[in-house]
Design a protein around this nucleic acid. Structure first.
Lengths: 175, 175
DNA sequence: ACCTCATAATAGATCGGTCTACATATTTTA
DNA sequence: TAAAATATGTAGACCGATCTATTATGAGGT
């Protein structure tokens, strides 16, 4: 159910993930949903976003250890996210962004989840920058995350990898 | 009706703008909506996004003429957008972003509108950078737009101006 | 008379959420 | 050890609310 929710969320956000579609895609019956997620849709989406955030965070952390420098880490993530995005027909961008924009002002629990996920991503980025001796690790980590999230947004809006490629060419200036 | 739609869109995207709320907020009756917008909700939202995009684009173009350099233009926009965002209780971010993420893969007309709006913003930014003799005006324009959009997203997710301030401090490196 | 547009009732579908019934497994009790 | 009770989920029908869209009607100006 969490995986089905995530797929639907990535395509169309909180409201794009109808509970009917979730139960249809997961094969589980309606009643089971409210047994496992008594908090209803809000809880289901919250746990799904947190789960997806941890997944991507793990990939980023692995890449942060493997990459030779911060530029390699960011360009690597951009390439990975670009593949995912294009292969899915411009559906799978950031699993957090859409929910964050839709619900940040409406739902306190979901805003908190989104904030935590982004905070953890900023943390792994900041740690790598600090380890490299970057002069402004905190400001730069947030800026880089904003740059990547913005690039994903523009890529989906244009249905093209071009924004990702342009950002990839310019990210070194920020680092 | 277009203004009411825009307000609702900024808060919660395409699905956050129920037509019942639109007609209630605008004071117009239900039927009038489908007289003026025979294309239904898709047309209404599309025109509203285009209208909002032109508004912000106009502000950006004025600021592009008034600002002493590209850094001033971007920091000016960030300050303006930050005010709007905080004053509205973290509701009014980018009127295009949420719809773009929700509908880019679903609705061809709306994807086209979002792509055009972002394209026009990239254009004014690129022109100013080219006029300043910047070496990579096209790549940089897209990167700066991505940076600003990402900063707005993070600010809404965290319900804080901090991401905007951090990005403001680091944007000079990109320019 | 004609066209433009306002007005509100209503249709039909879908929404998130709740309900009861049922199956299986585990624990308690005699 | 057998029977009863409880716990854990499955399963899908069903609810009111809300959604977008359509319809019929009528006011007002030309």
């Amino acid at each position: 159910m969490l995986d089905a929710t995530r797929d639907l969320i990535e395509g169309g956000g909180y409201f794009g993930a109808g509970l009917n579609q979730v139960v249809a895609a997961s094969g589980a019956p309606r009643g089971s949903l409210y047994f496992h997620f008594p908090g209803g849709k809000e809880q289901l989406v919250g746990e799904s976003v947190r789960r997806a955030g941890r997944e991507i965070g793990d990939v980023a952390r692995e890449l942060a250890e493997a990459a030779p420098d911060a530029v390699g880490l960011v360009t690597g993530m951009l390439a990975l996210l670009g593949d995912r995005l294009e292969e899915s027909g411009w559906r799978r961008g950031c699993p957090v962004a859409t929910v964050a924009l839709e619900m940040a002002a409406t739902s306190d629990p979901l805003q908190e989840v989104c904030s935590e996920v982004y905070g953890s991503w900023e943390g792994t980025l900041r740690d790598r920058l600090a380890a490299d001796g970057h002069p402004e690790p905190e400001d730069t980590a947030v800026a880089v995350l904003a740059l990547v999230e913005g690039a994903l947004l523009l890529a989906r809006a244009h249905r093209s990898r071009e924004p990702l490629e342009r950002v990839t060419r310019r990210v070194a200036a920020l680092l």
